[in-house]
Computed example of a mutant assay.
Amino acid sequence: MKKVIILITLVFTQISMAQSNESVHLWPNEVPNEKELKQEHELSDDDRNKVIRYSKVTDPDFLVFEPIKANKLRAAVIVCPGGAYNVLSTNLEGSEVAQWLNSLGFTAFVLNYRVPQKQLGALNDIQRAIRMIRKDAEKYNIEPDKIGVLGFSAGGSLVARASTQFTFESYSKIDEVDNLSCRPDFSMLVYPAYLDHGENNSLTPEIKVTKDTPPFFIFGSATDVKYRHSCTVMAAALYENNVPVDVHIIQEGGHGFGLRPGNLAAKMWPQLAEKWLERVLDKI
């Protein structure tokens, strides 16, 4: 009974959030590289650690989180939750992070990209989201050249892919929005995953860093044993191509901590990220 009550509470929390934040769907007609029909996001019954998880997304969208008082930078961040490309941890690594960004005066967008195991579809979704937000920059009171991306775990993988494959047309153009650039202006990875799938744990081959790759912030922990090399191989590739990068790897923290209290890493990364955002946006 207790588990049922918790799940019901999480559902109502998600419904309340959706009602208070505008939902913008990415694809007006058919969804590219999607075999299933559009449907409402499917909620997982896995509610461990009070995390709301979407187990299926076929009609991707983003939720708009506007700050009460915008800062002078007029910048925006698209937040990509993690979940191993199987689910989306939509509150832990989505709405909670968006609200933190709002507290700093940033407009935030939580991207519900396609899952499970639809990596090409997810890339379609983030490219389309960047273009749509860039088109509507005036509506959101942001600068079209100050749109960044922030990803956690698998969401970090997606952010790295979007930040290095912006010249790759991953789907066929459907309207004038797709003529706009899908290059992020800055990129942030927090305990990213799947970036070390090259030979001998080198950089994943599809991630090709060049001098045109946007500046990066990377944060991870040494006790994130399964994924910690993602931080180092990505940082090395950025260094080698003279792309500005701040990389922080602390001893303790593990994986999947988000902003939740009780974890030193969860306390440290937002402080470091805030200072980095101020510096990097001042140069854009």
Rank of each mutant, 00 (worst) to 15 (best):
M17S: 06
I250K: 04
F62C: 12
E66H: 00
S23L: 13
L101Y: 12
H197G: 15
P261A: 03
V115N: 08
G256Q: 09
R74T: 00
R134N: 02
N29D: 12
T164Q: 05
L63I: 00
M17I: 15
F216M: 01
N71L: 00
V225R: 11
L281D: 06
H41T: 07
N241G: 01
S172D: 14
N241Q: 10
V11M: 09
P244H: 06
A154P: 01
F62E: 07
T9K: 13
I52F: 05
W27E: 09
P32F: 00
T232R: 15
E206Q: 15
V77C: 07
A18Q: 12
T232D: 09
K2I: 08
M1Y: 06
K50A: 07
N29P: 00
T213S: 11
A108Y: 01
H25S: 14
R48E: 12
F109A: 07
A76N: 02
I249D: 05
N71Q: 02
A76G: 15
F106G: 02
V31I: 11
F12P: 04
H197E: 15
L73D: 09
E169Q: 11
F166M: 03
E96R: 07
P215T: 04
L180R: 10
G198F: 10
S221I: 06
T164M: 12
T58N: 10
A193S: 15
P215W: 03
K283Q: 10
L92M: 08
M234F: 13
F219G: 00
V177L: 06
W27N: 05
V31Q: 01
Y239L: 14
S55H: 05
L120D: 08
R131Q: 15
A193W: 00
L104P: 09
N112F: 12
Y171P: 02
I250L: 13
T213D: 03
K50C: 04
N29I: 03
P144I: 04
D59S: 14
L123C: 04
Y194S: 12
G262A: 06
C182Y: 06
K35M: 11
G105M: 08
A76P: 06
T167D: 15
L272W: 07
A266V: 10
Q14E: 14
M132N: 03
M132I: 14
K267G: 07
T213F: 08
I249C: 10
E138T: 14
T58F: 00
V31N: 00
K226Y: 09
E169C: 04
S202W: 14
L88G: 05
S44N: 05
V4S: 10
H255A: 04
N200R: 15
S230V: 14
V177Q: 04
L158R: 04
E199C: 01
L238T: 13
S55P: 02
K72Q: 13
D47C: 09
S16R: 14
V11S: 08
P116D: 05
G151W: 02
I8Y: 05
R74D: 04
N141T: 10
A273Y: 07
V24H: 06
V149D: 08
N86E: 15
V209G: 00
D185Q: 13
R279D: 08
L26P: 07
N141Q: 11
V159S: 01
S187R: 04
Q39G: 10
K56A: 08
L180H: 06
K208Q: 15
N241C: 05
F217Y: 12
L104I: 08
A266L: 03
